[in-house]
Structures are given as structure tokens and as C-alpha cells.
Simulated assay, not measured.
Amino acid sequence: MTTLSERPVVSPRRVTDVVGAYVALTKPKLVELLLVTTLPAMMLAAGGWPSWRLVGATLVGGMFAAGAANTVNCWFDRDIDRLMSRTRNRPIPSGAVSPRAALVFGVVLAVASLALLWLETTPLATALAAIAILAYSVVYTMVLKRRTRHNTVFGAFPGAAPVLIGWAAVTGSLAWPALVFFGIVFCWQMPHFWALASRFREDYARAGVPMLSVVAGPESVGRQSVAWAWATLGATLLMGSITPVLGWAFAIGGGVLGAWYVVESSQWLGRIRAGVPDRPMRLFSVSITHMTLLSIAIAVDVLV
């Protein structure tokens, strides 16, 4: 019989490290950015504030769904993560979590997310979440990421899915404002991620991942980023014109933010052409601020 004094003592620090490693697998900063678009989509669909229970279930279910897809991404990409300075300290390459444990964790998160969404939201929201998980973890991560320069464009579909999930959680259907909001987030992702991929171009090249910044010249990446920034602005203006509940906050804020995105993308291209330090992370930071403030503008218009 084991006495109390003979039982192993689990260090609180060790428990914290383990929990932190599993949380890191979900890429919490990316999950947070995805959820930023879910709540305003729900508010638009409801024409106000949905019930707290529905908001909580949708956000937690969406967090689990995104975390599941990101965890499977970390599991599959563990070989190339070891080669990249940006990712070599992730939980699997560093040895903090075994590949098998990571995969099981990802599957458990996926099941939990779909169960919660099914019980508390709508069948359509649940189906869209399932499609998004599969699209990112299988179609993007396992099939396209290492095979085509267009991987970012395909990866942008699940990246914009929280908008549709949030809308469907409230209404059980989809409508034009949801689809146009989806288009804004979809277009926005290209300059956002290409800026990051340009900053870590050598990492992706070393890992053999054909990101656009690896297989195309910097000027080509810059030109395409400007084009997608203009598309983001265009979709924003379209959404303002077809969504009656949106008023001055979105009209002014969306237009200014979209123009800012175009200007920053154009300045990035200008620095590339001039042969001066292009500072891609400046555009990356601006993109995050842009989407956050745009979501706030939507929330303000709906509530005011």
C-alpha cells in the first residue's frame, strides 16, 4: 500500500508547462483573430445582441474547431517545423508533446467543438465548422500547402469560415451580408499572410514549402497584395451598401480602414521596387489592426 508520503508529487510548474504546450498547439493568437470576426457576424444576423448562451456556445465551439484544425496542422507539419526558425520551438519539434498525443488532442477538440455546436446552435453552423476543420487540416495542410503556390488562397476559405458559422448559429441559414463579410475576410488574408511569409521567406524555402514569397519575386508578391487589398476595400464598400443595419460607423470606419490597407500595401510594394528595406511585418501588424477595428465598427453600428 502506498502511503501519502510515498506518492509522487506533481510540480505545479510542470503541470503549467504541459497545459501551456497543449494550448500552444492550438495557435491561440490565430484562434483569437478568427473569433474577432465571429461575434460581429452573429450581431449582424441577430440585428442586435444574441443570447449570452448562444454567443458563449458559438465562440467556445469555434475556438475548439479552430484549435483542432491548428493542432492537426502542427501534427502533420512537425517535420518542416523542425527546419524553420519560427516554428522549431513548437510543442512537437521541441519534444514537449508527442505526435500521437497531439493528434489525439486535435481529434478530441474537433469532436467537442462539433458536439457543442450541434447541441447549442444549428445544424448548418455545425456542418460549416466541420467543413472548415477538414478544409484546413486536410485539404490545405496535407494536400495543398506543399504542392502549390496558391496554398494561401485555398487556406483563406477556412480562415473566413467563422463569419459564416457565426451567422448560421443565429439564423440557421446564410444571407448576402454574411457572404460579403466572408468575402472581406477572405480577401484580407492574402496581404496579411503574404507579408508574414515574406518575412520568413528563407524559412519556407529551407522547408521546401512553395509559398508565393518563395517561388515568385518580391515585386510579384507586392503587386498581388495590393490587388487583394483593393478587393478587400471593394467588398467592404459593397457590404455597407447592402446591409441596412450598418450605418455611419461602418461607412466611415470601413472606408477609412480599407483605404489604409490599400495605402500600406502600396507602400510595401513601393519599398520593394525602390530596393529599400521593405518591412513586411508593418503590413502584417496593420492588417490585424484593420480587421479588429472593422469588427468593432460593425458591433458599434448594430448596437447603436
Rank of each mutant, 00 (worst) to 15 (best):
A249N: 05
S173C: 02
L237T: 01
P50K: 05
T243A: 10
Q189C: 08
L35E: 05
A68Q: 14
G270Y: 05
A24I: 01
E32R: 08
S213H: 15
A69K: 00
R146Q: 08
L109Q: 12
G222D: 01
T37L: 00
S265Y: 06
G166Y: 04
T3L: 13
Y140F: 07
T37S: 15
W194H: 10
R223M: 01
P244D: 03
V263P: 01
R13L: 10
V31R: 00
L196V: 12
I298R: 02
Y136L: 02
E264W: 10
V286Y: 06
S5G: 07
L233T: 10
P123H: 03
G20V: 00
S295Y: 15
A127I: 13
I252C: 12
I80N: 00
V262K: 04
L109N: 02
E264M: 14
Q224K: 11
T37V: 07
T122V: 09
T171Q: 12
E219Y: 04
W167V: 09
V139M: 14
L293I: 11
F157K: 03
G172I: 08
V36Q: 06
L196T: 06
R271L: 08
A229Y: 05
A96L: 07
R199T: 00
A178C: 13
R100C: 04
S173V: 01
V108M: 03
W167N: 03
G61N: 01
N73I: 00
L294M: 12
D301H: 04
I242N: 10
V302C: 00
A229P: 05
V215Y: 08
S113G: 11
S137R: 05
L257R: 14
E120I: 08
V72R: 14
A127Y: 11
R100H: 11
V18I: 08
A169L: 03
F186Y: 13
R206P: 07
T148D: 01
S113P: 04
F250N: 14
T38G: 10
Y136Q: 01
E219I: 08
T289V: 13
L39C: 01
Q189W: 00
L39V: 14
T152A: 14
G234W: 02
A168M: 14
L103W: 03
E264H: 12
L283H: 12
P218W: 13
S265N: 00
M281I: 09
T126I: 01
V214C: 07
K145L: 04
L33R: 02
P210R: 04
S173K: 01
Q267W: 15
L30H: 12
T71I: 02
A41N: 11
T87D: 13
A125I: 04
W118A: 09
V9W: 05
L294W: 09
N73C: 05
T141I: 07
S137C: 05
R86E: 00
L144F: 09
V111S: 06
V72E: 13
G166K: 11
P277K: 07
L119V: 13
M239Y: 15
A65V: 07
S213A: 15
V214S: 12
G62S: 09
T87L: 10
A129E: 05
V226F: 14
V263Y: 05
A197W: 08
G61P: 00
T16S: 10
R82D: 02
L35R: 04
V163A: 08
